[in-house]
Write a protein that binds this DNA or RNA. Sequence first.
DNA 1: TCTGGGGTCCTAGGACCC
DNA 2: TCTGGGGTCCTAGGACCC
Length: 422
Amino acid sequence: MFALVDCNNFYVSCERVFAPDLRNRPVVVLSNNDGCIVALSQEAKALGLKRGDVFFQVRRQLEASGVAVFSSNYTLYGDMSHRVMMLLGEFTPRLDIYSIDEAFLDLSGMGGYEELKPYGENIARTVRRGTGIPVSVGIAGTKTLAKIASKFAKKYKAYNACCIIDTEQKREKALRLFPIADVWGIGRRHSARLLSAGVKTAWDFTQKPAAWVRREFHVTGFRTWAELRGESCISIDELPQNKTLCTSRSFPAEGIETLAVLEEAVANFAAECHRRLTRQGAACQTLTVFAHTSYYRTDQPRDFLQTTVQFPVATASLAEIVSTAVRALRQSWRTDGHFFYKKAGVILSDICPADEVQLSLFDPTNRRKQRAIEKAIATINARCGQGSIRMAVQGQDKRWKLKTEHLSRRYTTNINDIIRVK
DNA sequence: TCTGGGGTCCTAGGACCC
DNA sequence: TCTGGGGTCCTAGGACCC
């Protein structure tokens, strides 16, 4: 059996933990740059607001309805996520962290309903008590069915935060109620095609012949079909390793027009990529830098820069990654025009474990010395805060900084922001 | 004025090998 | 008239997820 634990309206719930007056009030959380809505409370959904709504277009409506608005505070959400996952880790030796707000637990060896139901309820209670975050738990024999069970647990209060699909009768009943478009693995395209084939619910899909599903929806669709029928095809992945790693941002207002400012931004993106790369104990062989103008502006010249560089030997070095990114940007910078770059980013790919790097006979770099320096930097940054030591090209003033006009405090990660109880 | 940021997997088709 | 059979690797693009 698998359990899927899903945090309810995660970003909104994180904000509510530290601002209890927001309970029962409509709340939305915005994307970077306060661009669009990425998370909403139930009350906000009831007002007709949707994920993806563009902030400046719905701003008046938000003000008129008294909706609480937050810029996204990833420092807070990341830390809260970590706390939730730590608690979940105590319930199973095999935890599969699927996203910032979801994780699968391997419950193999557990007993029947009488044992699972209190166990699931206990998971929800423990997370709620330990972090303040409400969660929904779904338990079933496949990951796809567990996802469906968690949706029922979230929707109907009577489940007491834990829904279990453990018999054929319950499976059929659940699938007959479940719209095909909401199934994990069925996106907009597939659901449109399924609807035109007369498939409205998850149950309808399971009644289609295997050969048709395999032909029309390839192996991924076929796996979803089999999982819905109770055959487990997607296993627990305890240590997912990134295959690519990307740090990118949109810039506020007009964007960036000078190379110096863009260089500083790209250097910081590269440093962030490096931080995430080394946290996984990995190295990368390929680096890509890109920058482009706004897709929405038709009145300005457009441009898309992209340069990819192969490292001679896979690297995990801050200096090498940052300097290579900056060099790649300079290389692709155009001098024959004047552009306002609205977004830029750094992508690391061909990622492998740092201790499996293929060395080169002709590599002139002193890797041992380099590793010692990197280790010292990492130690100091861990002790004194990220960015205490950084590359000079990363700059100080962050001229490319994001717009975050509705940011909450870093309640859990900065001593100056800690909540005060009077 | 203003429109997010991060991933994975699969397939088809081209280029190449014997 | 009639153009083999078996592979690998790479890339672009599509579909999906949160």
